[in-house]
């Protein structure tokens, strides 16, 4: 049995490519990512600045390292919170009374249809400065995906033999949910979690592309791209590095998700076969 599929390997490699510099940036960076040097604005890549400088003469490599760290952190946070909320709501809808089920599932529909931009704006108004509003906005956008997934899987599992057996022993709905159903769904959820990381990172970057995400002087990939957009005619190169990092990051998570899926699928097949 092949344990490491090519997509899993590729995913791990790509994630490491962005993860390692991001972790390194916690301890050291070539330059202060916020230090401006107007003499070297738009500097081309050189020995001093490996990736060149932006429109304020800030070192692009250092800014990319900081931006990927923030993107990873906010992606992890929002997906984790979103998954937690979604799973709880999904289980509550599947095992709770009929009225709760209807209410929660309609609420999930409404959340899904509700524009993320509005959520981000409202949260920024309530929570003020910082990264929290955009993280929570992304988390809210993630909730419906997880609650629907959990809901449908729990509904399938509800009718299965072992659950009926557990119920006949007198196990309560909470015990059934957390001791019997959830473990069997874990594989599927982990896969979803990994590929959701990719979409969360993408969502964060589009929010900060619109100026709704991480605030300057901290850097974020979307913000760097929207800044680069202003200089597309004179300095098109500026748009390349942040986009590539974003692509590698999202691709990495998607491949990782697929690889994990294959792994779990293969193991199941091995068990059943």
């Amino acid at each position: 049995m092949k344990r490491i599929t090519p997509s899993l390997a590729a995913g791990i490699t790509l994630v490491c490519i962005v993860l390692i510099p991001a972790l390194v940036s916690l301890f050291c960076m070539p330059y202060d990512p916020q230090a401006m040097d107007l003499h070297s604005r738009f500097a081309a890549p050189s020995a001093q600045h490996l990736l060149g400088c932006d429109h304020f003469g800030r070192d692009l490599l250092s800014r990319l390292m900081e931006a990927s760290r923030l993107a990873l952190a906010s992606g992890l946070f929002s997906v984790f919170l979103g998954a937690l909320g979604g799973i709880i709501l999904g289980i509550a809808a599947a095992l709770g009374p009929k009225w709760l089920e209807t209410m929660l599932m309609r609420l999930a529909d409404a959340l899904m249809a509700f524009p993320t931009i509005l959520t981000a704006l409202a949260l920024a108004a309530i929570l003020g400065r910082g990264t929290a509003p955009s993280i929570i906005a992304i988390c809210v956008a993630m909730i419906p995906t997880f609650s629907r997934l959990t809901y449908s899987m729990v509904c399938e599992g509800r009718a299965s033999l072992y659950v009926r057996a557990a119920r006949s022993y007198g196990a309560g709905p909470l015990r059934i949910a957390f001791c019997h159903l959830l473990p069997s769904l874990m594989g599927r959820l982990v896969t979803q979690l990994t590929s959701s990381l990719g979409s969360a990172v993408l969502l964060e970057s589009s929010l900060s592309f619109l100026g709704l995400g991480i605030q300057p002087p901290s850097s974020s990939l979307g913000m760097m791209l929207s800044e680069a957009r202003a200089y597309v005619l004179t300095h098109p190169y500026q748009a390349l590095p942040p986009g590539l990092v974003l692509l590698v990051m999202v691709l990495g998570f998607n491949l990782l998700g697929d690889g994990l899926n294959d792994l779990i699928f293969d193991r199941r097949r091995a068990v059943h076969g």
């Binding site: 230090a35 304020f56 400065r129 605030q215 300057p216 002087p217 202003a230």
Partner: peptide, 29 residues
Amino acid sequence: PRSYQEYVNAGQVIAAQLEEAGINVEIQI
């Protein structure tokens, strides 16, 4: 103000200079 990119840029440059003079600046767009 977000709709005015030049003011957002100017604010960032000024903030960087104020930091050098020992004043902390928290930017919110």
